[in-house]
Design a binder for these strands. Sequence first.
DNA 1: ATCATTTGACCTTC
DNA 2: GAAGGTCAAATGAT
Length: 490
Amino acid sequence: MEPGSEMSTVNVLRRDLEDIKDCLIQLSTKQESICSSDILQTCSRVDGETKCCNSEAKRVLTEKQDQISFLLKFALKKLDQILPTATTTGQVESASGLKRSRPLTPLRVCRPAPFLLDSGAHGNAGSGVSSAEDSPPASPGSKFFKVTADSKAPGVRQNNPTLYMPTATVGKVSVEPAGSASISTFSSKAVVLSHMSIKSPKKRPNRSRRDRNRQRCKQTEAPVEIQKLKAGEQGKIPDDGYLWRKYGNKPIKTASYKRGYYKCRHFKEMKCNATKIVQQANNDPTVFHVTYKDKHTCKQAQQFGNGATGGNPSADTDNCSLADQISSQAGADIDDSLDFEPAGGLEWPASPDNSSASDELFPQSEEEGVVESSKLEEQRSILDFADDLSQGLSQELSGTELLQQVQDSSLTVGSLDSVHCNEWQISTSPDLKLHSEKLHSKLGCSDLVDAMENMDEIVLNASQQGSWNFFSDIAFWQPDLADSCFLSGN
DNA sequence: ATCATTTGACCTTC
DNA sequence: GAAGGTCAAATGAT
């Protein structure tokens, strides 16, 4: 891939994130309207005065409210952190004269209505203090679980006694049914042999320590790129266009699936050091996290132009960048996002060595080029968590779903009927429709849920085009960002 | 026979 | 000692 086209993909990704963020802000407004809407005020008042309101329905609604509030806050915070860091890019951007087309929208956090808080389940009843700020719901069946300070999850630090995260895998904390440990046959033969005091017939000649260190040193200096790819045909590992040879397969303690190790097929005759490690995602077997190390120096690199470390030649051969795809979707109406491109014909800085352009944008901190496995794990954790967040948002941020739940919960008191709900939906968010249309024209999606799903697609497309570094490099460039994304509170 | 994959020993790091 | 990465013999597929 040409560095320029990769950068334009990153630009598009940024714009999409900004749009999604704007949409989230709109929804936050909507959520605030939920909290203060006459409908719920009426419900609460009636409940307080006549006790005729369906308390179970209110509890469900409250829980939903809390979850939405928390997710909104989390998403906004995450996006707020990603966007300014990604678009500011420190010296790089200022040096190249890049300017934002519009200022970042300040973070807005919705507080659920105090009157909705039950004293039993959620506490803070009547206190006027938001529960979403301090204690997201953790009721049975909730999408949240509690992480204590001694957790090994990334982002969990001392002095942060409690935080809440969506369920499923987060860092090294995973929620799995007891007894689900995989049965490994690894080293079984060795165990038997050692039991029988028989030494394994396999014996490799010892390499000198200096040679091994030299090799390891060479490996750790290799540039690393993480991509997240969808399964190929029949659920097999995705084809990235390069020819690889598998040289290892290992069960990993924290992974449900074995990790595959691949070398460039020309590693011998052309001394190509490119390798990749393929790990199937725990929660979604159709998703593969592929870690590319070192560049192809073989004929494949010449054939495909070898932009990124592992690269994705098939994406290069598409001759159609993500920007092109979205532009074609949006037709002529790209509007103000166009001036987000480098002004004055300036190009994004290209990597002199033709490696991933985002290496320049998001330089690795500390010892440059040295990638520790723990950081890779952290990146994977972040990617997994992004999945969870996206899924959670898709499920929870549906206003219509919430409305449906209200309507389905036998709340027939006073004005809480479908007509008023619909009116409320229209009236409380006057800009939502406009924004949705904008999103629709740009991304081909009609509402926030679609937007979030589309985000996955965008990210997937970007990853296939070698731009996954946009996210993964953020974790390297600013590791604390990954941490802070997980923290609740201010 | 050749090539690719699997397997488990060996290695380093933590 | 556990865990993960790599090597090369063993095995399987064509």
